[in-house]
Design a protein around this nucleic acid. Structure first.
Lengths: 211, 211
DNA sequence: GTCTATATTCCGATAGAC
DNA sequence: GTCTATCGGAATATAGAC
């Protein structure tokens, strides 16, 4: 009679339970990123996970709990482990490397990008504090590194925070607006190779201190 | 017994009817752009328009009809009257002018931008044909003008379509991700003046043919 | 743990009085 | 034309058998 049966829902214990929770997570990411929170239904998530609806609710307290936990999970990989400029590094390489990693993220994790975009578009009801806290500090810190490089003449004199916004906008665009890009390009081809080359070229031109 | 009472809903006739339809349109744009189609409710729209729910349904055939018509309406001002490069114009001015007008649109019509973004994020179910038709042609045409300028050495040699994507991404970002921008900047200040100057500066650097 | 059946809430749409 | 009241379907969540 120690510590069992006290919590409302089981913490992941056995391998099987963990696997099912992950299947639900994955299906939920699919559904929420495509339809938004309100547009998603438990039936869709259950079907995607290969479970019945009540069985999904055995593992999670409810639809909102699933959404909150999925969002929290993706923020760890999204907000923003890659924004970590080394003041001692080669400035152009540091920034271009960040652009490359962000574009790689957009390519590999488009569902996460779209879910994040949906959350922001709707006013970031669940992650306001994270944006004004941890993310703000991260932008402040890295912005100062960039400003330092500019002051030393190692890169062009650009507004650091808007540069970061521009990197976010241009890279995430290839995940969030992928539908539009594919339809406008018309070809069935992967836009990322061209995008990678284009962005590398453009940020190089923007940051070149010698012009 | 000529032509009355045949259509299911009244076409806008009197001034008052037209005004109420516009009030509904405006409220619907508010609600749909913030919550998406599924997240919006007729009660929200009715409240925003100052009408009862059945009264809203007197003027429109249903929720989906409202959404479709609002979307069609905004596309006229959004997709994309500003993308009209003059081959005989000054290249840098043509492109910078387009950036400026797009950013101005993001500032003046953020609801339209967000509704459009939501529609694309969810796979553009209603406007696929428009994207692969009219918009695709527009990008093709203007892309060739830009490519011509690059071939003549009047601007740097950049990938024209990805340049257009970049303009869309960077300008719309200030409408669609405004919540994030405000929280990250922390100050309550309008980000658009800095954005305007920053983007003008950056696109100038990107397109300068002499480097 | 997992299911079928069902309770409950919410929302789009309609009926009908005025 | 506009309202109150309500129907009917959909979706979240629960009950209870197995």
């Amino acid at each position: 009679m120690a510590r069992s049966s006290t919590s409302a829902r089981p913490a992941p214990q056995t391998r099987i339970q963990k696997a099912k929770r992950e299947a639900i997570f994955d299906a939920a990411l699919d559904v929420f990123s495509q339809h938004g929170f309100r547009g998603a239904t438990l039936d869709m998530i259950a079907a995607g996970a290969g479970l019945s609806k009540p069985n999904v609710l055995y593992y999670f307290e409810g639809k909102e709990a699933i959404y909150t936990q999925v969002l929290a999970q993706i923020l760890e990989t999204w907000l923003d482990p890659m924004l970590n400029m080394d003041p001692a590094g080669e400035p152009l390489e540091e920034i271009r490397g960040y652009v490359r990693r962000k574009l790689e993220m957009a390519r590999e994790y488009p569902r996460e990008s779209r879910l994040f975009a949906t959350e922001i578009l709707q006013g970031a009801p669940q992650i306001k504090s994270l944006l004004s806290g941890a993310l703000r500090d991260l932008v402040e810190k890295n912005g100062q590194v960039i400003a330092g490089w500019a002051a030393e003449g190692k890169i062009a004199d650009v507004h650091p925070k808007h540069l970061i916004f521009m990197i976010w906008a241009t890279t995430q665009h290839y995940a969030d607006f992928r539908t539009q890009i594919d339809l406008v390009l018309g070809t069935g081809e992967d836009p990322f190779p061209d995008a990678q080359h284009f962005l590398d070229h453009m940020f190089t031109r923007m940051l070149n201190p010698d012009t």
